[in-house]
């Protein structure tokens, strides 16, 4: 796969293609698989993503520890907020839903990881539903998201243990922003700016889950990650440009991750996990899990 998003963007521009097309072409070449075969795998991923969105909205999902669950169902019925009845509201619901399913040992697509699995399905399926976009175009967007994630994996990291939450929900927001910008008709260049705009806003975000469990704050970070992606898409489609090139933003995310203290990399040694309440909850809930 491409090692720089700039290369994919210039390839797409030179050949008059989308990022999804150049990504699928190169994947086919790399893996010796037909494009139709790769699309079939992405179609299965989309099917599972939609299933997780639906399952999470019913609200009977509870995590092992009981720390999270039921909030997607709360939000879906709420009209109290300023975003009520907008696609933005619906996308927040979907992000909570998928991540609650994940915490409750339901089936999800790690995209790029299980901890950040809510952002991409929320943004893509939410926008597809609001705008009547076909599954074929959502599958294209998944290929673009895969391209962006592959570049992040290559240049930085996709692991909270290595790079903090910026490498999980931050990467997911960047993937969602770039791919949805293209899905909504944006150019490869605009998709690149959307990716950079999303990623710059999660730089430095620590991974500090209560008790080390993929639950709290992960569920909410997925919703706010989706919100960041939507802000980036909105700006990029207005042709707003981010002055630092996207690959440099990705590089610096990797560098910040490497310099991040180990307490902030999924060890539950710092951040929210180390607050007095975070420590108390961890102790109580882990005890509860042991008792079954």
């Amino acid at each position: 796969m491409y090692k720089a998003l700039a290369d994919a963007i210039s390839d797409a521009e030179a050949r008059g293609k989308t990022l999804s097309m150049v990504a699928l072409d190169l994947e086919s070449q790399d893996q010796g698989r037909a494009v139709a075969d790769i699309r079939a795998s992405l179609a299965r991923a989309l099917h599972v993503m939609r299933g997780a969105v639906d399952a999470g909205m019913t609200g009977d999902m509870r995590s092992n520890s009981g720390l999270v669950g039921g909030d997607a169902a709360k939000l879906v019925n709420s009209t109290a907020g300023p975003l009520a009845e907008t696609p933005f509201h619906d996308i927040l619901v979907r992000a909570l839903a998928v991540q609650e399913v994940n915490s409750a040992m339901g089936v999800i697509v790690a995209a790029p990881t299980a901890g950040g699995a809510g952002v991409l399905p929320a943004v893509l399926t939410g926008l597809a539903s609001a705008r009547g976009i076909s599954d074929e175009r959502v599958i294209d967007a998944l290929a673009t998201a895969g391209l962006i994630g592959a570049v992040i994996a290559e240049r930085a990291s996709l692991s909270g243990a290595e790079g903090g939450c910026q490498a999980e929900t931050g990467a997911a927001a960047a993937m969602a922003a770039g791919s949805a910008t293209e899905m909504l008709g944006g150019s490869p260049k605009q998709a690149g700016h959307a990716t950079a705009l999303a990623m710059q806003s999660t730089l430095g975000l620590v991974c500090d889950p209560i008790g080390g469990l993929v639950e709290l704050p992960c569920v909410f970070r997925n919703a706010t990650g989706a919100a960041i992606a939507l802000a980036a898409i909105e700006m990029a489609l207005a042709d707003i440009e981010f002055a630092i090139p996207v690959d440099e933003v990705i590089d610096v995310m990797g560098q910040i991750g490497r310099e991040m203290d180990v307490r902030y990399r999924e060890t539950a040694g710092g951040g929210l996990a180390a607050t007095p309440t975070g420590r108390r909850l961890a102790k109580e809930r882990l005890y509860q899990i042991k008792r079954g």
Binding site: S41, L42, P112, A114, A117
Partner: peptide, 21 residues
């Protein structure tokens, strides 16, 4: 070599790709 399908995947039971899948 990173594959698109390593990034959009695996399809798995949660909650953690390292601790569960």
């Amino acid at each position: 070599m990173v594959s698109l399908l390593d990034i959009i995947g695996p399809v798995m039971v949660g909650p953690s790709s390292s601790h569960t899948a």
